[in-house]
Nucleic acid binder design. Structure first.
Lengths: 191, 191
DNA sequence: GTCTATATTCAGATAGAC
DNA sequence: GTCTATCTGAATATAGAC
């Protein structure tokens, strides 16, 4: 049985609205309206609008880092590791599309010092991916690609996933989607 | 010899600032300050803040469409066409990184009816890419990939390019970058 | 937890003189 | 084309009563 606290309801309503309108365009009034109470009540749950953004962004970022760390710490070969990273992205994007959308679209609205903290987390994540690719090249399972370019291309190529799930929760099969993406990233489009 | 009108200067300053801070966070006052005059003067060049966004967004969108149309209308094989599309993205991103950044980050700030118009242009572009991929599969130069997934993966995988050029105008060699990306999209990472 | 009322700040945009 | 002054609206946030 699932119980949701009033605070969780408030945060979910915020998340939904921020996803629809964008962070800056989402007013505290609009969130309150969706909760059916006055603006001032919003501050029973948070101390500022920034709180909402920080909360979701750092929580979901940590989730990606955890998945990545566990995969990197395993004894799988590099290609299997990459496959698992892609799998993790598909799964998180499927389960929490709105949070992932925030990661893609709204992180720029963080204020210092949280902004710098977040950018650093992002860089760390990219470095972890680069590390994986470098290991794969050394193991001779990957081609001799440029690490920076390959890191950017691969991470970028899976950044749209949240959108597929945000639009249609049901029609998308995550397992088949993962298979298709892995096939493309591993083998490219050429026959 | 290059002459720039005052209006062009104003728009360039706007573009630069919007890229730095985001559209919503960029105030007319801030743009005017960078131009060293009062806010009210800004309205000598535009009639509303929205104008700025519309102007850049539809202009650069058209540029991508033109390139795509010319490539599709050629008699090249599908793989060569795809290569040329990637080449066009690299070149436009290198020459107009801030405009491309707007395409990626700020299109959501358009208001109706321009918003819907722009979304339609975007969809059209995706359909053109899908058409190219479908042709390539029929020609048997591409694998039997899922069209929707492949379209999203490929377009997404080249969306970060503007960032590489916005950061470092000089250090990036567009030709070599293109080669690396084409290699990845065509052949994947696996050895 | 809910409301009313309000402080504060700041945004886009216009009028009108020089 | 530039300025001063101002309108108008809206946003985040707080105080304090019930």
């Amino acid at each position: 049985m699932k119980t949701t606290t009033r605070r969780e309801d408030f945060l979910q309503a915020s998340l939904q609205l921020i996803h629809e309108k964008g962070f800056k365009a989402t007013t505290m009034r609009a969130i309150a309206e969706r909760m059916d109470f006055d603006v001032s009540n919003s501050y029973n749950y948070i101390t500022s609008k920034q709180d909402i953004l920080e909360l979701f962004l750092f929580r979901i970022s940590q989730e990606f880092h955890h998945a990545m760390d566990n995969i990197l710490a395993s004894s799988y070969a590099a290609d299997e590791k990459l496959k698992q990273v892609i799998s993790a992205h598909v799964q998180v994007s499927a389960q929490k599309p709105y949070e992932v959308a925030l990661m893609v679209n709204e992180w720029r609205n963080l204020k210092e010092p949280k902004y710098s903290e977040y950018v650093e987390l992002r860089s760390q994540y990219e470095r972890k991916m680069s590390k994986l690719l470098r290991a794969g090249i050394k193991e001779k399972v990957f081609k001799q690609v440029d690490i920076k370019v390959a890191t950017a291309v691969i991470l970028s190529s899976i950044r749209w996933l949240y959108d597929a799930f945000a639009k249609s929760k049901n029609t998308m099969n995550p397992v088949e989607l993962e298979r298709q993406i892995v096939a493309l990233i591993f083998g490219g489009v050429m026959r």
